[in-house]
Design a protein around this nucleic acid. Structure first.
Lengths: 332, 332
DNA sequence: CTGAAAGCGCTTACAG
DNA sequence: CTGAAAGCGCTTACAG
């Protein structure tokens, strides 16, 4: 069964395809009611589905945006992607999803792919430390907005972020107020910007109270498994621990497991603090005390911002910062 | 800065764009080494990125597949999507992701979108009960494979499934062997095929032992929050419960939380069984005993199958069934 | 070994 | 109120 095209409809309706195109695209001020209805009916009857590839080639726009995240399997990114998709849909865009695994090469490959697909813009949670992907986007004049992760070395990029440092400061203050002094911090992977920002919040506050000790800083990879591994190391190496501040929830969930397994009472023996407020943090027992990011809002805003840029509407601020919020629950 | 095209390269290299096209697509048996290198160098130097939209229009293929799932935020689907994306990439395809929220209209809308984008095929985890989406795919001769969820009323569709009924049978048997008799079952949303299949496994086995009681069957929506809600209901309404079999892990995680909160010891007072073996099931405490699906393999196979169909290679079996596996952990 | 030409299915000035 | 024509950037027979 051959796919039906505008020409088919035009032929059947006895008009030109220009006319068909116009009525199907609602640019029909000058088309008589009669022709309009005739065309609409035929299109409907034949289940006509426009070929948007042809349309894109002609208009140079695709009504598609790309989103590049490290890993959709990470709840933070699945939630934020979901938000992006929802808002994109509202504005008539659809989204191509790309998992970079924090690898620069994959990022680059995907950026090329997206450009070649004529995406109208991209939302980019940069994982790698190299920035070829961003340069490519710039060279090809593709609008893009950074999400979650700031990128050093560039001025004036659009972006939607959370005030990571502030969040950790709040968290550490809260632990301190509750009498915790031996606070271990688990940072994220070395070269990722948010990992550094969160660490700096910890360092700042601990130094302020004169209790910073670099041996209390551990590194892991933002995954549950990583949280598990690092926690085994921590309880082996440090004798007295009042609290562990995991710089994301996934690691906290993994870590809490190890603590409970080893007979620690949470939060009596040891407090736990996470970061993100992903869905699952409310469902573990005890519930995770964490620094909440407005994940859905961030996804939504990044999409709105991108679409504004695409449409050349003036945006007041190139960078949008969301405030994190301490969410007191059962683990601290 | 204007995007550079094949014509540009052709002009600079002093050849026709046909020649450029051929060397860039490795159909270059008949092109002299010299011209070939000249073209390749120019393309590289100018950072040429081919316009794949134009290519698609011309070839009628897009090297893109669509995947429609209920909700990427659901770990089962994020894991399976990830698997699909990984394998698609290996074969040179990329993927457009669509969240249907189990709504028929969204499914339909997305199917149209995917068709209009000229996707080469789609992987479809059908949520709604209506099947217009499938009909559309068929009418337009788009290859597709069903994933996870069988659809009634159609013969001969390609699909990758898990033997849901068998899985639940195994689970109930295991509980029975361990002396559990008052086994509550939480099924999934009414009209979803896998919900029915899993329920039937429960009913079958319970009847076999003469202990089936329809008051012990509850319904929820496959989410953590749903698991929480239904569990509150269950412990209010039923006095003596030996075990709760949640028909997916998300509900089990939510449910376990409620049980622990209400002072039940798991698994001493009450056993819990889940279904899926999503990542998180290993990280809750106690670890969830569950019926594991080979999620990643299922995603991978559905993609492989789809690509075989696209390429017209003969496939032995239209339906691939994976065997679930009882994973004994801490909750039962 | 390479080029000219048609075609993919649309959109968009322009003309009448 | 509507049509003819060019163009988007590719690919693919066909010809030489």
């Amino acid at each position: 069964m051959k796919k039906i095209t505008m020409s088919d409809i035009a032929r059947i309706a006895g008009v030109s395809k220009a006319t068909v195109s116009m009525v199907l695209n609602k640019k029909d001020e000058n088309i008589s009611e009669e022709t309009k209805n005739r065309i609409l009916n035929i299109a409907k009857e034949m289940n006509y589905i426009p070929n948007s590839v042809a349309r894109s080639l002609s208009t140079k726009k695709s009504s598609t945006i790309g989103i590049i995240v490290p890993d959709i399997t990470n709840p933070y990114f699945s939630e934020v992607s979901r938000a992006v998709e929802d808002s994109a849909n509202i504005f008539g865009y659809n989204v191509i999803l790309c998992n970079s695994d924090n690898e620069t090469e994959k990022e680059e490959k995907y950026v090329e792919l997206l450009i070649s697909k004529l995406v109208d813009g991209v939302i980019f949670a940069v994982g790698g430390h190299n920035t070829r992907g961003i340069e490519l986007l710039q060279e090809n004049s593709i609008p893009f907005v950074l999400l979650d992760r700031h990128v050093e070395g560039f001025e004036n990029l659009y972006g939607v972020y959370c005030e990571n440092q502030l969040g950790v400061v709040q968290g550490v203050e809260y632990l301190y107020e509750n009498g915790k002094r031996n606070i271990v911090f688990v940072k994220g992977p070395g070269d990722i910007e948010i990992a550094k920002q969160r660490l700096s919040g910890y360092k700042l506050t601990m130094e302020k109270y004169g209790i910073y000790n670099e041996n209390f800083v551990y590194e892991s990879d933002f995954t549950m498994q990583g949280g598990k591994n690092v926690t085994e190391k921590i309880i082996n190496e440090i004798e007295k621990i009042d609290a562990i501040f995991y710089s994301n929830d996934a690691m906290a969930v993994g870590g809490m497991k190890v603590l409970l397994r080893n007979g620690y009472k949470v939060p009596d023996d040891i407090s736990i603090m996470g970061f993100d407020n992903i869905q699952i943090s409310e469902f573990v027992e005890p519930e995770l005390t964490t620094i909440g990011q407005p994940i859905y809002e961030m996804g939504r805003e990044s999409c709105r911002l991108l679409i504004d840029i695409i449409n050349n509407v003036d945006v007041e601020k190139k960078e949008i910062y969301f405030k994190p919020q301490l969410i007191k629950r059962g683990t601290a």
